[in-house]
Amino acid sequence: MLTYFRQRYPTRVEVDKNGKTFEVPLPDPMLDDRLHMALSTDGRHWTALNGNQPVWDQHMRDPFLHRGPDGLWRIVATGSNGKKEDREKYGPTCLYATSTDLIHWKAEAYLHLMKDVRNESGALVRNIWAPEFFYDEATKEYMLFWSSSFEDAGWKKSRLWYCKTKDWKTFTKARVLFNPPYSVIDGTLKKDKNTYYLVHKEEEFGATTGERRGIRLATSNNIEGPYEVFYGDLNKGQIAPTITEGPSVMPDPLKAGWLLLYDYPMADRYGISSSTDLKQWGIETDIVIPPDARHGSVSRITVKEAEALRKAFGK
């Protein structure tokens, strides 16, 4: 099951040689920042549910959806709401929602994950982007992680942060998870054997740095790091083409190995690559992705669950 929102970007941000930011208009923009779903049996050819229309009328971006060990489905997603005075006092939020059947959802809370964090000037962060979670079997805790920045734009000098919770009501103080020598967003985490693989987007671009908006990899033997950037031999270490973002990693349903899904946000299309070792990737060319899909996450579901979704949301 692929869960995503839909968008065609209105502009592409660029930075000139003097460091000035400007925007380049893109054609035919659109935004439907609600939950969408698609199904596949091979991980390469995806069929949208509900005619590629939302399956839940709740505003969100970058939805990350997974089932916990307790059987409950959970979503965390980019999206601020709640009381204005709380946002001014505690900073931005992310959405937290739950479901027992993938059809009926409940918005549980808008989480102020960075409320206890300030910069040297005492200011709050400006954003909580693309939150995800990973269940730590060793500690029986959920680790939430996301990107945040204190700058005037979420992509500037961004770092990946994390906190932990056992009950989704109390959370540890947020700490930096990943602080590479570049701005970073869109982290996703997989464990294979004794290694944690942190797939993420390097968010560096402009006349002085060159175009470096692409997917990278970092590894660690500890879920909380430190993570070491994998630079590889090709494409300066990027494991997907430029310009790409919103990575999601899943076991390959057809053979031993992995699939990496990502979107081309400025080109309005999706991409899929495959790997046997999570480090060396080759682009899959025979793929089908619902139009305008952005920043998806992938979950494995049962045949019974798939049949229930088809019944609820049509072909």
Rank of each mutant, 00 (worst) to 15 (best):
Y262C: 00
T98Q: 07
T47L: 14
D192G: 09
E305L: 11
D167I: 00
N50Y: 05
H36Q: 07
I185M: 10
F313G: 11
L31Y: 15
R175W: 08
K169M: 09
V55K: 11
V176R: 06
M114T: 00
R12C: 05
K156Y: 03
T78N: 11
R159F: 13
P241V: 15
K164G: 13
Q7K: 12
V24Y: 10
P251F: 08
S99M: 12
S275C: 00
D186H: 09
P253Q: 10
Y4M: 07
D286Q: 09
Y231N: 15
V13R: 07
S299E: 14
E141A: 15
D101M: 03
R216W: 12
Y162I: 03
M250V: 13
D186I: 07
A218P: 08
P247F: 01
R34F: 04
W155P: 08
K106N: 13
K164W: 10
K173M: 08
Y262H: 02
F313M: 10
D16N: 00
R44L: 13
N50F: 10
K279Q: 15
L177Y: 03
K83Q: 11
G246V: 01
E305P: 01
G257P: 06
I215T: 09
N52I: 07
K173V: 12
N194H: 14
D70W: 09
D33W: 04
F313K: 10
L254R: 15
R126P: 00
M143I: 00
D116V: 02
K84M: 11
W129R: 03
D136F: 04
D252I: 01
K20N: 01
Y264P: 00
G71A: 04
A293C: 06
T219L: 15
H295W: 15
I215L: 11
R213C: 10
N18G: 04
T98C: 08
L2C: 12
I223T: 02
E137D: 06
S121C: 02
K106E: 14
P25L: 05
E204R: 01
